[in-house]
Simulated scan of single mutants.
Amino acid sequence: MAFRGRGVARVWLWRWRRGPLRRRVDTVECWVLLGAWLLTVLVGVCAGLTAAHSVAERLARERAEWRPTTARLAGRAPGEAGAGTVAGERVWSKARWTGPDGSAHSGQLRVRPGSPAGTPVTVWTDRRGRLVAEPATASEARLNASVVGGLAGLSAAAVPLLAGRAARCRLEQRRLDQWDVDWARFDALRGWRTG
């Protein structure tokens, strides 16, 4: 082995090489590591793609089913309209609208302070006429699906990664225990005492 700087040069794939010091636990460890890495990638990718597809599908369904409709204020909105109000300030006021099936609905909406009765307000409703938030645009849906898919993939990939790490720590402890037994046997053969 060549020396580099302060340390020893790294030997790639050393666990796979044959040698007099290689033990069965070394071979098991290399297979455990390989399996853990493959499972980490596979589980992460599958979970991420599944979550992203599910979110994208749900948001596409919302865009297809939710429709804008016009609601009318049932009474004058509380507050005073004018110079004293903050730009973008909204207050709750009762409004009425007709659902896609023709049924009448009413509920509370956020409107500008002091809006008169009968003021039209655009709201989004589902198929039953219930109020819903404005659906995400196609680009917002892609971003949302990507973020959720990425987080789900990373979370799912952590499980086999941590399990592989735990198995590797256990194998490392077993290897050190075997070295202790072998050193004790060597000491007994030579009449030395190393520990």
Rank of each mutant, 00 (worst) to 15 (best):
R24T: 09
G44A: 12
H53E: 12
R22H: 09
C30N: 03
D26H: 10
V41I: 11
G35A: 12
T50Y: 11
E29K: 03
C46S: 13
R22M: 07
L21Y: 00
V32W: 04
L38S: 05
V32H: 00
V32Q: 02
D26V: 01
V41C: 11
C46W: 12
L33P: 00
V43G: 05
R23K: 15
T50W: 11
G48I: 08
A47L: 13
L21W: 01
P20W: 00
A47H: 10
A47G: 05
R23Y: 00
D26Y: 02
G48Q: 09
V28C: 07
W31L: 15
T40M: 15
R24Q: 10
V28R: 04
G48P: 11
C30T: 12
P20L: 05
R24F: 13
R22I: 01
L39S: 09
V41P: 10
V28S: 04
R22N: 04
R23Q: 13
E29D: 08
A47I: 12
V25R: 07
A52N: 08
P20Q: 05
R24C: 07
E29V: 04
H53W: 13
V43S: 08
L42Q: 00
V43R: 10
D26F: 00
R23E: 06
T27Y: 00
C46L: 15
T27R: 08
T50A: 14
H53C: 09
